[in-house]
Design a protein around this nucleic acid. Structure first.
Ligand SMILES: [Mn+2]
Ligand SMILES: [Mn+2]
Ligand SMILES: [Zn+2]
Ligand SMILES: [Zn+2]
Lengths: 136, 136
DNA sequence: AGAACTTTGCAATGGCATTGCACTCCTTAA
DNA sequence: TTAAGGAGTGCAATGCCATTGCAAAGTTCT
């Protein structure tokens, strides 16, 4: 059953370890962005730095992207299979101010505006705060 | 000459003190978003917490808005005269990854996208990273 | 001047990201 | 099979930034 998880890791050239499989599984199940702290709570037996390094490895191999939602803690969410975390892959994120959960709105692409003369865009972080459907 | 500065403070119901006038003047001259740390360096004789509280007072009275540009430190920039920091007042910010300076792109309004069912927006933080005109 | 309130300076705290070091575990080549 | 080398992990420490308690200094008002 975790064969599919292992596959997902291998496809991104990440050697599957117990910790990595657990973190990946968790991110897939939750289907939202999680902070290091949230993962730390879920895996009480694992060390924070191990989870941190797991996420770092995931980032470096485009398995997750980091999200700055202004909550104070960076959140991490799974990338699409073909993601290379370029400007084109950037999408809107939504932070619910009630439940504090952060979601990827991958169906809501970012429209990049015309910038003033001489400005060139390389990366976009578009965050919307509000109330999510579950909290409405 | 700082009469106009005092006026600006009074219009926002902020009592003008020496520190407040200096910070306001600095924000106006620089015409960009500044971090607490940057201000601390500019006013070496003033205490960090004093500047912090100055900015807090400015925020509470809609004289400045805080910007999360992912640099690790919050930046502060002057609001427009009639700003109440609502969703409508939100605008795009630009962080130059070369000079690390952050600018308000007030002429580039944020277009709020259609959100999934049940999601309601209250605040938007749209940051673009890239190279500014000065660094091109 | 004296009381009451505001502003400031100093020092401490707390949260989160990050890293050095040593130990354990796994892979591989002799 | 075994020893060496490399990868992964746990622990503890560090650094940076935001924030706050408390007392001193300054202001306002009577
Ligand atoms: Mn996302
Ligand atoms: Mn701005
Ligand atoms: Zn919610
Ligand atoms: Zn620049």
């Amino acid at each position: 059953m975790n064969t599919s998880l292992e596959e997902k890791l291998r496809k991104k050239s990440i050697k599957p370890t117990a910790m990595r499989l657990l973190v990946l599984q968790c991110l897939m199940e939750q289907n939202r962005a999680l902070s290091l702290n949230e993962l730390e709570v879920l895996f009480e037996n694992a060390d924070k730095s191990t989870i941190f390094r797991t996420l770092k490895t995931f980032q470096e191999n485009y398995l997750v992207h980091r999200i700055n939602d202004g909550s104070g803690a960076i959140k991490y969410a799974l990338c699409d299979d073909d993601c290379i975390c370029s400007l084109e892959d950037n999408h809107i994120h939504f932070l619910c101010t009630k439940c504090e959960k952060t979601y990827c709105l991958k169906d809501t692409p970012i429209t990049t505006p015309n910038l003033p003369n001489g400005f060139r865009a390389n990366f976009a972080n578009y965050l919307i705060e509000g109330i999510c459907s579950a909290c409405s």
